[in-house]
């Protein structure tokens, strides 16, 4: 049996002098820490805010120097091909996300429940696109897309490439959600009550990781809306490709700033909606 050793008393901490100086020390440390926090916050705000401010300012430039107008914003709907490219990008974003959830969530759940030893392999495979540059991926996909093009299929076919591109981000978001709940016990409880696997997924697991799914949606949609390299090289006219095309070929580049600012606003709006929905669900349960 281990001997009981008396705990030595540390005089520095128990002496009245030390007791007086500690709160003072803490207050000064706290002030310094707060100042540092404000500094970091201010730097980050300038770093992110300044380009955005410049973007919005540029989008409001009028036809004559020194004037401002909403003319470029109004042109977003009428500029040839711009609205079509926005529609295409939105469609690709939504379909990519739905496809990704349908593919990844059951796979991750199945791996956790039935073959946990393949969890690491699945994680490695899902994170692989992060390690491979987009240009390298495109070189591999190009022959396949050339074949697809022969059938004159819609630009939505880009979803196959995007599903792979968003894989690491959605995997991480869903993985965090699955870690937060006891998937094996909940699914076994539901199964013993008569639930099919589909019911377990839709009525038990998905509602308990709603926030993770929303996060995955936000990441996936932001990424697909802004993706340029793959769409450009494979020859699809998505929103970002169209913006570059307008800036290069048009004599009215202000519309590019307006469309970019609109895209940014849309992503912010999406972020706000998703966090509002998530917060409402949490509040309702609390």
């Amino acid at each position: 049996m281990a001997a009981i050793v008396p705990v030595p008393v540390v005089d520095d901490l128990t002496s009245p002098g030390a007791q007086q100086s500690r709160p003072g020390l803490r207050a000064s440390q706290s002030r310094r820490l707060n100042a540092f926090r404000y500094l970091v916050f201010a730097l980050a705000a300038v770093f992110f805010g300044l380009p955005m401010f410049a973007l919005f300012r540029m989008s409001l430039l009028g036809s004559r120097p020194g004037t401002y107008s909403f003319a470029a914003w109004k042109q977003i709907g009428t500029y040839p091909g711009l609205l079509g490219s926005i529609e295409l990008s939105l469609e690709i974003s939504v379909i990519t996300f739905v496809l990704m959830i349908l593919l990844l969530l059951p796979t991750m759940m199945w791996t956790r429940l039935r073959v946990p030893r393949f969890g690491r392999t699945l994680e490695f495979l899902c994170l692989l696109p992060l390690a491979i540059p987009a240009i390298v991926l495109v070189v591999g996909w190009a022959p396949e897309y050339n074949r697809i093009e022969r059938f004159n299929l819609s630009g939505i076919m880009l979803i196959w490439a995007y599903v792979i591109l968003v894989l690491p981000y959605t995997y991480r978001a869903l993985s965090a959600g699955l870690n937060a709940i006891d998937v094996p016990t909940l699914s076994e409880a539901a199964r013993s009550l008569g639930a099919s696997w589909a019911t377990v997924m839709t009525r038990i697991i998905a509602p308990n990781m709603w926030q993770a799914i929303l996060n995955a949606a936000l990441l996936s949609m932001s990424l697909t809306l802004g993706e340029f390299t793959v769409a450009y090289i494979l020859g699809y006219n998505t929103f970002s490709v169209k913006l570059v095309s307008i800036s290069r070929n048009s004599n009215n580049p202000v519309v590019v700033f307006a469309a970019s600012a609109a895209g940014l606003l849309f992503t912010f709006l999406l972020l706000l909606i998703l966090s509002y929905v998530g917060r409402r669900r949490r509040r309702r349960r609390a």
Binding site: D182, T185, L186, E188, A189, A190, R191, S192, L193, G194, A195, S196, I204, N208
Partner: peptide, 15 residues
């Protein structure tokens, strides 16, 4: 799901 067995688990299993 087809066995009609009620089960109570060691871990808390309420949804």
């Amino acid at each position: 799901s087809k066995r009609d067995m009620g089960m109570v688990f060691q871990a808390y299993s309420l949804f």
